[in-house]
Nucleic acid binder design. Structure first.
Lengths: 107, 107
DNA sequence: TCATAAGTTCGATAACTATCGAACAATAGA
DNA sequence: TCTATTGTTCGATAGTTATCGAACTTATGA
């Protein structure tokens, strides 16, 4: 757990990003990061999901290049990689977040 | 096979669309529809994939609301549901197709 | 030093998915 | 009517994924 892997901007793949965001729980996490600069992982613990499952989702998002995880003490802070995503896929996150905010994400 | 199911515009879900497009083969199919109004399914048969697998991908795309399948005789013509997708998720397909066209889709 | 807290990793399981070949259905054309 | 064409459906399999609880790691604070 010493080092958390983050892909470089150029390594971020569309397929991986779309896949990561196609899960309602993960999309929910990303929506929370929309307005915020940064959030502790624990900020999502109101969703009724086991913490090991959260960890799995964070890993999926992180390895897809969607979020950045900063380690500080025994907390981790996550943030949306807005600049990287927007540089690589202009307009993508904006349209996804807008649609999600309007409740068109799932069921 | 009498009727092919297509969701109404309002039933198209972001999660399902993102999932459908997160598969490289399906994204490839959608890219071919970008410039074209309509294509016969057979137009994708150069991809080295079994036809039953294609059928599966077409079904996934269709049920997610990404493509429309029109039956004519013994052929099926598929088209991108541009208007519906753009009405529901403004800018989404444009940004996805642009990124895909620049080769940022996968590996 | 010891207990607590925050997340990750492990092991297991159930569900889902991509893939294929074979069989099937429906239509067009000879 | 018979045959070839187009695509779907079926059955099977291998791989992947979401989920959980338990064990583990690291750091904080008493």
């Amino acid at each position: 757990m010493r080092q958390l892997h983050h892909p470089n901007r150029d390594e971020i793949l569309l397929s991986s990003v779309l896949y990561a965001l196609s899960d309602p729980a993960r999309l929910h996490i990303v929506m929370r990061l929309h307005d915020q600069d940064e959030l502790p992982c624990s900020a999502c613990s109101d969703l009724e999901i086991a913490k090991s499952t959260f960890s799995h989702h964070f890993k999926t998002l992180r390895e897809a290049g969607v979020i950045f995880t900063r380690m500080e003490g025994r907390q981790r802070f996550i943030s949306l990689r807005k600049e990287d995503l927007d540089a690589r896929f202009p307009g993508l996150m904006e349209s996804i977040l807008q649609a999600a905010a309007e409740g068109k994400a799932s069921h």
